[in-house]
């Protein structure tokens, strides 16, 4: 009885989570006439791929590539800056416990709603002539993900027993060597988990991309898909097809990184 209840609750949660995705996928496969059928054609309809070819018409491929470049670029940049910063905060002695203060300040940048920074960001990027550019957006996304990287990685570094690093130093290793050859291999699951989160955030981001790009040259997928809502019509089928395609990379990446994700997220709880 208890088990049945558990499964029922899990099933309900699953249904709620899956329903929009299911709807998106079916819409992308339905002919226009089936999309608005009443009662809705839940399961039975004549599938078509016309919306997919429709979606790939125009700049969709360019948007897709923009998103890929932006997500990977900003993730790599955030890791390159954030990982050494986190290691420094976790391991080195700072006068007057300043590592706690600095870490607090870094975190505090995430405490305000992102929208409040949009006007200054817009002005700064305009002055730097980085509006409508992937470089500009990469910088913004990197800044956005950096606190997250620092805080997550700091937790993972804290889990590495200090004595292992000290042993490496006595064995003749430099500080950089300790980080590269001893510590990073040990926090690999944490590194993977952090990268996945950064990628997902950058991949899905809509607001900044919408405001900081006005031409198609630097537009990302979420903005590109939304631009299918025009004054004259809403192309539901094409939008859904584009949405499905946009979901795939994250889905694939997350499932590949899954074994790291689970270990990474539980690394803080159980000593490895």
């Amino acid at each position: 009885m208890k088990t049945a209840l558990k499964y029922a609750a899990a099933g309900a949660a699953l249904l709620i989570a899956i329903a929009p995705v299911y709807w998106l996928v079916t819409i992308s496969l339905k002919r226009e006439i089936d999309q608005f059928a009443y009662p809705p054609a839940w399961f039975v309809f004549e599938p078509t791929l016309e919306h997919y070819s429709d979606a790939f018409r125009g700049s969709f491929t360019a948007f897709f590539l923009n998103s890929v470049t932006l997500a990977t670029g900003s993730t790599i940049a955030a890791l390159l800056v954030g990982v050494p910063a986190a290691y420094g905060l976790a391991r080195f002695d700072w006068p007057r416990n300043w590592n706690e203060n600095i870490a607090g300040w870094i975190l505090s940048t995430r405490m305000l709603p992102p929208i409040v920074t949009i006007v200054p960001l817009f002005l700064m990027l305009r002055e730097a002539r980085l509006l409508n550019s992937l470089v500009g957006l990469t910088i913004v996304y990197t800044a956005f993900n950096l606190p997250f990287v620092v805080w997550m990685m700091r937790g993972f570094f804290d889990e590495v027993p200090r004595e292992i690093e000290e042993a490496a130093m006595l064995d003749g290793e430099t500080a950089v060597g300790v980080l590269l050859r001893i510590v990073l291999p040990l926090v690999k699951p944490g590194l993977a988990a952090t990268a996945v989160f950064c990628l997902i955030v950058a991949w899905n981001e809509f607001l900044f991309a919408l405001i900081l790009t006005q031409t198609e040259s630097a537009m990302t997928l979420p903005v590109g898909i939304a631009s299918r809502v025009t004054q004259y019509e809403i192309k539901w089928g094409a939008m859904s097809a584009a949405g499905v395609v946009a979901m795939l990379p994250v889905l694939i990446f997350a499932s590949v990184a899954q074994r790291y994700l689970v270990r990474g997220l539980s690394l803080g709880a159980v000593k490895g």
């Binding site: 004595e163 000290e166 042993a167 130093m169 006595l170 430099t174 490895g272």
Partner: peptide, 20 residues
């Protein structure tokens, strides 16, 4: 001197082996 330049070896209570 830095620890790495002292030519001293240490055995730790926790052994501090490299797990990977």
């Amino acid at each position: 001197r830095e620890a790495r330049d002292r030519d001293i070896a240490m055995v730790f209570q926790s052994y501090a082996l490299y797990p990977h």
